[in-house]
Design a protein around this nucleic acid. Structure first.
Lengths: 158, 158
DNA sequence: CTATCTTCGACAACCAGGTTGACGATTGAT
DNA sequence: ATCAATCGTCAACCTGGTTGTCGAAGATAG
């Protein structure tokens, strides 16, 4: 029974937060280098929520788990930065159809690449087994085993 | 080589964030049940930063990694809620000495207990080895191997 | 002992990312 | 044809931050 002393319970959230923070910070550092200096963490989630087929404001809000007002604001900034386009919805005169621009798609493509590269760094450091175990364990504890919803994520990243 | 397909890189931050979120939400759910419904995540960090001997506004800001103005605001709310006291510093007429009230200490004690209990749940679910491995791996990747600083944590929790 | 430099904390204005509430316009269901 | 639900916007507000400015108080030189 090699019983190395257990860590304190409060360290667990701190470690999770620290690791998350580090990944997100590094992502944005690299995105900035690759021509996307204005992309904030929240924007990535929003783009993700819009999806390849576009979506309406309300739909984006629902997918993100925020109010449609909040979604409207975020989309407004995304539009100013050239990451999305807004157009009247052909099927519903009340609705606005939001689509991702080529620049937006470029940022998503690069984000995905950067995340893969970051994960490879974890694998180099910890080994593939440990990383998989870590992911599996986190998925277990969050009952997010299949598919991570965007809900409840934005807001507390910066 | 049983090579179950690797997860996508972007899932890692999502899993970390989800797990963190879940722990913090559960902490505050239980704290609310135990007589601390007004304690927000940021306040716990601030109390932590004040410490058993108290601290000045600037010191709290430094420990938290935020401006002294931000620290002043948070301490103000903490004081309104009865978690801290402010008194003139005996050694420096410019400074304000902030101390934790008994109620504040109660909340810290309960938080520590809740975090221990939450960690025990992880151990029940995943096994002590996996939890230790997870903590060690996260500590490795965050070079937070020894002692987690409060710096850069507040702000992106809610 | 005085002149200068730094630090302390407060005040004000601002930002990001949310919230609720109200509202006119449109849609869909009866 | 009516009436309720939904669409997006506006306005006001909250939280947790930011900068800049400032007077008062301390530290350090000369």
């Amino acid at each position: 029974m090699a019983h190395t002393m257990d860590r304190f319970g409060f360290e667990l959230p701190l470690l999770l937060a620290g690791a998350f923070r580090q990944l997100i910070d590094e992502l944005h550092r690299r995105l900035a280098e690759q021509g996307h200096p204005d992309l904030r963490p929240a924007y990535g989630f929003a783009l993700q929520a819009i999806g390849p087929d576009g979506a309406t404001m309300s739909e984006i809000g629902r997918r993100l788990g925020v109010s449609k007002q909040a979604a409207t604001k975020t989309v407004g900034k995304l539009a100013e930065l050239g990451y999305v386009d807004r157009a009247p919805d052909s099927a519903d005169a009340r609705a606005v159809h939001v689509t991702i621009t080529p620049r937006g798609r470029d940022s998503l493509r690069r984000s995905a690449e950067i995340f893969e590269s970051l994960r490879r760094e974890w694998v180099r450091e910890l080994g593939a087994d440990r990383v998989r175990a870590l992911e599996d364990d986190l998925a277990t504890m969050t009952d997010l085993a299949g598919g991570v919803p965007l809900h409840d994520l934005p807001g507390w990243l910066r």
